[in-house]
Simulated assay, not measured.
Amino acid sequence: MINNQHKIAVVFGVRNESSIAFQIALKLHASGCKVAVSYTAETKDEVLILLDTHLIDGICHQVDIRNELEIKTFLNQVYQQWGAIDYILHGVAFGNQQVMCSSFPGSSEQAPNYINIPFEDLMDSFNISAYSLLRVCRVAEPLLAKQASILTLTYNASQRVFPNYAGMAINKAALENIMQYLAHHFRNTAVRINAVSAGLVMTTSAGGVNGVRKLRKIGKVTAPLGNVSAADVADTALYYFSDLSKKVTGNIHFVDGGFNIMGVAIDEG
């Protein structure tokens, strides 16, 4: 029902096939968008193979989200080749085990407890996971189409305690606040910006969180609608990347099967 013919979308954050950002890129492509995708030096080969496999013939560019010049080069290429940008997905996040206060599987390094999160590690994580939204929007602002839509991805740990998420929760809380202030910033240009708060999806990043499978088991029975997939999140993203959401901005939209409304976990029995 959503027709995005002649719309131009830019997706930051595709890492591999399990990425929420990749599922969103697929939905955008299927809806008729021209889709431009960024990748990092580490993900280049896998991302390019994915796009080729799924017949997404768009602009691809290596971008370090911490580097404003690289973002500018990428977005300017999209603008010059295709025109004004209608949609942007900010789907990037990073936190090492020093930030998450949890030793990753296979690591012999001891992670710190929360009160001892190293400042430098946290700031690098903040730069990638939260401040980068400001950076992308600053570069994109003069290149956006009328009534463009920007979307970022957050997590409920911004508001509740998930011990093994630790410093990443600081980043998500900041990201949500940045998003809301940007909604005000863009008020005179009718550009809208929102966040999707996804349930625990089994992405590569999630796989490195201690206890993630236990959380998925809890979510399966606790959330009224059970666990969600990356494709479920992408379905909601497509609403924001369409004219259906043209009067929605500054919103945090939960796609977690209703997990966020629950005060206690539900036993399987």
Score class of each variant (00 low, 15 high):
residue 17 E to D: 15
residue 17 E to I: 07
residue 17 E to W: 01
residue 19 S to Q: 05
residue 19 S to Y: 03
residue 21 A to F: 02
residue 21 A to D: 03
residue 21 A to L: 05
residue 22 F to T: 08
residue 24 I to E: 04
residue 27 K to V: 11
residue 28 L to W: 03
residue 30 A to G: 10
residue 32 G to W: 01
residue 33 C to D: 10
residue 36 A to L: 04
residue 38 S to M: 04
residue 39 Y to D: 14
residue 40 T to C: 05
residue 43 T to C: 06
residue 47 V to D: 09
residue 47 V to F: 01
residue 52 D to C: 10
residue 52 D to S: 14
residue 55 L to M: 06
residue 57 D to K: 08
residue 58 G to Y: 00
residue 59 I to W: 00
residue 60 C to K: 11
residue 63 V to M: 07
residue 66 R to W: 00
residue 67 N to S: 14
residue 67 N to T: 09
residue 69 L to F: 12
residue 73 T to C: 10
residue 74 F to Q: 08
residue 78 V to G: 11
residue 80 Q to K: 12
residue 85 I to N: 06
residue 87 Y to P: 06
residue 87 Y to I: 12
residue 92 V to Q: 08
residue 95 G to S: 14
residue 96 N to I: 08
residue 97 Q to C: 13
residue 98 Q to V: 02
residue 98 Q to L: 11
residue 98 Q to W: 06
residue 98 Q to F: 09
residue 99 V to K: 02
residue 105 P to L: 11
residue 105 P to Q: 06
residue 110 Q to E: 13
residue 114 Y to N: 09
residue 114 Y to W: 10
residue 116 N to S: 12
residue 119 F to M: 14
residue 125 S to G: 11
residue 129 S to V: 06
residue 130 A to E: 03
residue 132 S to T: 07
residue 132 S to M: 04
residue 132 S to C: 04
residue 133 L to K: 00
residue 133 L to C: 07
residue 134 L to V: 09
residue 137 C to I: 13
